[in-house]
Amino acid sequence: MRIITIGSGILGLSVALNLARKGASVELIDSQETLGRTSETSYAWTNASGKLDPNYHQLNVAGMEEHRVLHREFGMESSYTESGGLFIADAAQESGLRERLLQLEQHQYPFRLVNAHEAEELSGITPRENAALIAYFPKEGYVLPKKLMHNLRIAAETAGVQVTPGVVRSIADHFTSVSVELMDGQVIHADRVVLAAGRWSKSLALTAGIDLPMHDEVAKGSATIGVLGYALAPQLNLRAVVHEPTINLRPSAPGQVVVQALDLNPQADPASATTAGDPIGVELQNRFIDLTGIKPERFELRLSARSLPADGMPIVGSAHAGSNVYTLVSHSGVTLGPLLGKLAAAEILEGTESDLLSPYRIGRFEDGSRSFEAHIPTRIGEQ
């Protein structure tokens, strides 16, 4: 089977790799201008502690396990670290965290309560004196997205994936085949198309007659906009992902820390050249200094427009029976990417639907029984 994969982020690379390993002839359309841009600018925390819907929780737990599989495959070149994760709640957040832990107990998701001394030993961060409750999740971790995409791309090309530079103009489903037209006029024919182009998926799906329910507004205050800080602070030996009342931290490359404050996202304006010297950057850096006592040697700010299905949940599969266009979009692209790529490849080539993916078909939007409002955390502690 000849398959075109559109999108070169973690989802696109993962599905292309798994299709090729199963014997398909795969061509990956790679827009060099946008190569993995959204995947690269991601908090990249692997977890299921904030995903309490039973089906979605199960999917994310399986996604975490797939990162362990890749970790064993890539060995010393792995981009994944199972560092554990800490949630530090103050008095205002304590009841919410306790309620979450009760639900996670029902899911048999591993965690334990720790004191401030244990938290510091585990993470390298000293909790504030107002910490009321601290939970540690030993199976959570983080990914270095750029390194993961490099590993996936090398593995995909080794497996025979052909990479074609270009920007897709349109998709045409001919029912017995499919074709993709690039902006330069080139037309590529195949048996199937996998659409994994992140936030660009909605507009491309429309060219094939598919109404893909997604939030696609890229503007100040829109739910798709995320902002991250990148702090160079070699003095800080951060050993785990940390979420505390004012800021979230995860380890990155040696001496570097990724910094996030969800309440600042609505203030980010993608129309302006946001820098570390702008109010958001200054506030994010000040929060980092306030918690750690360390002024970064360098601090950068990055904005991204995230892929966001209408209800926040993945949209996976063909739009209808007989369609040759398979969509693959998700908000939790880093946690779920390697797993979704593997499951999608099996569905496409073997024709057997995955039970894990059955709640996430596009058909769920047809009868209006599901809300079109995605719940996106906007405050610390909501993740």
Results as ranks from 00 to 15, higher is better:
residue 106 Q to K: 15
residue 23 G to T: 11
residue 331 H to L: 08
residue 24 A to L: 11
residue 227 V to P: 08
residue 311 D to S: 14
residue 91 A to H: 13
residue 352 T to H: 14
residue 176 T to K: 13
residue 255 G to V: 09
residue 369 S to D: 08
residue 64 M to P: 00
residue 48 A to V: 01
residue 324 N to P: 10
residue 252 S to Y: 09
residue 360 Y to P: 02
residue 274 T to Y: 03
residue 294 I to M: 02
residue 338 P to G: 04
residue 24 A to M: 12
residue 341 G to D: 00
residue 346 A to E: 04
residue 172 A to I: 15
residue 246 T to P: 01
residue 343 L to A: 00
residue 79 S to C: 01
residue 93 Q to E: 12
residue 323 S to F: 08
residue 35 L to T: 09
residue 213 P to L: 09
residue 252 S to Q: 05
residue 328 L to N: 04
residue 171 I to R: 13
residue 287 R to H: 09
residue 97 L to H: 11
residue 64 M to F: 00
residue 213 P to A: 07
residue 358 S to V: 04
residue 381 G to M: 06
residue 265 N to A: 15
residue 162 Q to P: 04
residue 62 A to E: 03
residue 127 P to K: 07
residue 139 K to V: 12
residue 149 M to H: 05
residue 199 R to C: 09
residue 104 L to M: 14
residue 310 A to Y: 11
residue 64 M to K: 03
residue 224 T to N: 13
residue 47 N to E: 05
residue 171 I to P: 12
residue 371 S to L: 12
residue 217 E to K: 15
residue 72 R to M: 10
residue 254 P to C: 08
residue 322 G to Y: 07
residue 375 H to L: 13
residue 324 N to C: 11
residue 260 Q to T: 14
residue 315 I to L: 08
residue 182 L to P: 06
residue 244 E to W: 10
residue 314 P to F: 03
residue 260 Q to F: 11
residue 2 R to W: 11
residue 285 Q to R: 15
residue 175 F to N: 15
residue 102 L to F: 13
residue 166 G to K: 14
residue 84 G to Y: 03
residue 373 E to S: 15
residue 354 S to L: 13
residue 84 G to N: 00
residue 127 P to A: 10
residue 2 R to I: 10
residue 224 T to S: 11
residue 122 L to E: 07
residue 84 G to D: 00
residue 229 G to W: 04
residue 240 A to P: 11
residue 25 S to F: 12
residue 132 A to M: 05
residue 31 S to N: 13
residue 145 P to F: 01
residue 74 F to P: 02
residue 115 N to Y: 06
residue 335 T to S: 02
residue 17 L to I: 03
residue 230 Y to A: 10
residue 219 A to S: 15
residue 117 H to L: 13
residue 20 A to T: 01
residue 188 I to L: 11
residue 113 L to N: 07
residue 309 P to G: 11
residue 381 G to E: 01
residue 164 T to E: 09
residue 282 V to M: 06
residue 354 S to F: 11
residue 85 G to D: 03
residue 59 L to G: 03
residue 242 V to T: 08
residue 376 I to E: 03
residue 371 S to R: 13
residue 315 I to C: 00
residue 65 E to T: 05
residue 211 D to H: 15
